[in-house]
Design a protein around this nucleic acid. Structure first.
Length: 262
DNA sequence: ATGGTTGATGGTCAA
């Protein structure tokens, strides 16, 4: 199974780029975040025409939104977490006996203090809630993939400057610690770092606000694919499609790919 | 410390 995750930042605006991703990477399963569209307006027919007859999507007006596109049948579709907030950040489906979870963890706003910033508090709560879910209901022998925009860069090599980003939301110690705890809950294997050594700098997001994203390469690795230990030996490859950041009218995130042996 | 850009929206808000 070839799985791609991508924060597409509007599935309607960038459907043409999605077609390019499909043509270039030939994925079997695609997890999308920030689709930014209500379910009634989701481009389902276009997805089917692209070769993905099996769809699950969960969106709202203007913000958030997650989707799973699949060439193979999707079963047991669920929307387990935080939907009481109408957030549309978590979608679960089963493909070929593997549970695929599409995740969009809140970005968390600008100020990394839950006492003064509700968005940061929500982010921390969201990660804690996921951790409880996995710690209580999941085990290492259950085949599960978590894929999505986690909005946290855990390693020093996941950011352009560890020191300069210690106080910046996405790389603060409290976020990294909570994400590490979430990873340890089952535990999950970081599939991309299993293939690409942790010593190597690796980014999947570059801010729109930089006039030239290539100039200083000030990126962060916010997009992740994790698997349960039972899938570890089936990990065959991983790639971050850095080139996609240079496409015309790009998303600020690029697609991340993982190959898992059938 | 601040500003910088983008997308959905039709005010701003979120990222």
């Amino acid at each position: 199974m070839r799985l791609v995750t991508w924060n597409i930042n509007s599935v309607r605006l960038r459907f043409g780029l999605l077609a390019q991703v499909v043509e270039r990477l030939r994925p079997d399963v695609i997890c999308l975040q920030e689709t930014k569209v209500v379910d009634e307006l989701f481009p389902a027919d276009d997805c089917r025409a692209l070769g993905f007859p099996h769809l699950a999507f969960h969106g709202m007006k203007g913000y958030n939104g997650v989707a799973i596109l699949s060439k193979r049948p999707l079963t047991a579709v669920a929307r387990p977490l935080r939907c009481d907030k109408a957030d549309c950040r978590h979608l679960v489906a089963e493909v070929d006996g593997i549970e695929v979870q599409c995740l969009y963890i809140p970005a968390g706003g600008d100020v990394p203090d839950p006492a003064v910033n509700d968005k940061f508090a929500h982010k921390l709560d969201f990660v804690r809630e996921l951790t409880t879910l996995y710690a209580t209901q999941y085990t290492a022998d259950r085949p599960v993939i978590l894929a999505g925009d986690f909005n946290i860069a855990p390693l020093e090599t996941d950011v352009w400057s560890h020191k300069q980003l210690l106080g910046v939301v996405s790389h603060t110690p409290v976020e990294v610690e909570l994400l590490t705890r979430m990873q340890a809950s089952v535990p999950f294997i970081d599939a991309v770092r299993h293939i690409i050594p942790p010593e190597e700098r690796l980014f999947s997001w570059w801010s729109y606000r930089s006039p030239d994203w290539t100039r200083n390469d000030r990126g962060r690795r916010l997009d992740h694919v994790w698997v349960t230990p039972t899938l570890q030996d089936r990990l065959k490859g991983a790639e971050v499609l850095r080139d996609a950041r240079a496409w015309t009218q790009p998303s600020d995130h690029v697609p991340v790919l993982v190959d898992i042996a059938d």
